[in-house]
């Protein structure tokens, strides 16, 4: 074992400056700093700079978080959908790529459910003072709740189901569940809903005041950066978990083969060689 590899920073070093700070860590720190900056600016724009709405007053400021969360729900479920398609198509021909796609599908689905939860709760808190009710079985609201239920069941399936078919079943659920996303998006166009018209491409009576767009873009950028940060972290953790799981399986296999190996190489055991060397696994 290298006596210097105890987690400490070596300075100065014989072969140049060597530290434990990798490029990935620097990138993660920079991304975190950027995200915090964007979130602060987004909050400032939404709460203090954007003009007050004529009919709803201050309560409409929920809109800036609500719209960003809704769009990011769609985006993260889209990533989960695409990764699930890759998983299903590559699971036999390229298992390593399939495992990566599976981890990405899980990470993005979790992020999507978080944003969808936020959208639903913001919606109810906005509806009470504006519509006078907490909830109505309006098409937009109902299909959004259905979307949340579908992807929550996806996460529950991944958490509690076991066996080799679990990932395949989860991928199929993610793909079919995504069919609800276009229904949610077009619901305000297809049906007469209590929910307001879409802000983009919603017809002559819809759209935003141009002064509102600055706060919209800031908040969208901020929550996108936040979502990417958490999704990447979750993806890396899932990849690590997959490695640990594979290692546990290898150890179990080694344990089952040990009596055979010991009987075949007793002389090796006498010399302190208790199993295969690291590089031979």
């Amino acid at each position: 074992m290298n006596p210097h590899s105890n987690g400490a920073v070596r300075f100065p070093a014989q072969n140049g400056l060597k530290t434990n700070i990798s490029f990935g860590n620097i990138l993660a720190l920079a991304w975190t700093a950027l995200t915090v900056g964007l979130l602060v600016q987004g909050f400032r724009q939404a709460m203090f700079i954007a003009p007050t709405e004529a009919t709803m007053g201050e309560i409409y400021r929920i809109f800036y978080y609500h719209l960003a969360s809704a769009w990011l729900t769609f985006l993260f479920f889209l990533i989960s959908f695409l990764a699930s398609v890759v998983y299903l198509s590559a699971r036999r021909s390229n298992p390593l790529r399939a495992l990566g796609a599976d981890a990405l599908a899980l990470a993005s689905a979790e992020m999507g459910v978080v944003f969808c939860t936020v959208v639903l709760m913001q919606g109810t808190l906005w509806a009470r003072p504006v519509w006078g009710i907490w909830w109505t079985w309006d098409e937009r609201l109902t299909t959004t709740l259905l979307l949340w239920l579908i992807y929550s069941s996806y996460l529950l399936l991944r958490r509690f189901a076991a066996g080799p078919q679990m990932q395949t079943l989860a991928a199929v659920l993610a793909i079919f569940g995504y069919a609800d996303v276009p229904i949610v998006y077009f619901s305000t166009r297809w049906w007469r809903t209590q929910h307001p018209s879409p802000v983009i491409g919603g017809g002559p009576d819809s759209g935003l005041d141009p002064r509102m767009w600055t706060a919209v873009w800031w908040n969208l950028a901020a929550w996108l950066a936040w979502g990417i940060l958490l999704m990447t972290l979750r993806y890396r953790m899932e990849r690590k978990r997959q490695l640990i799981e594979q290692h546990a399986a290898l150890r179990a296999l080694e344990a089952s083969l040990e009596p055979v190996a010991e009987s075949g190489s007793e002389s090796g055991s006498e010399n302190g060689n208790n199993g295969p060397e690291r590089g031979q696994r």
């Binding site: 201050e58 309560i59 929920i62 709760m121 913001q122 808190l125 906005w126």
Partner: peptide, 10 residues
């Protein structure tokens, strides 16, 4: 109150 609650909840 609802505006603050929505932001806090988020």
């Amino acid at each position: 109150r609802h505006l603050i609650l929505a932001y806090v909840f988020t």
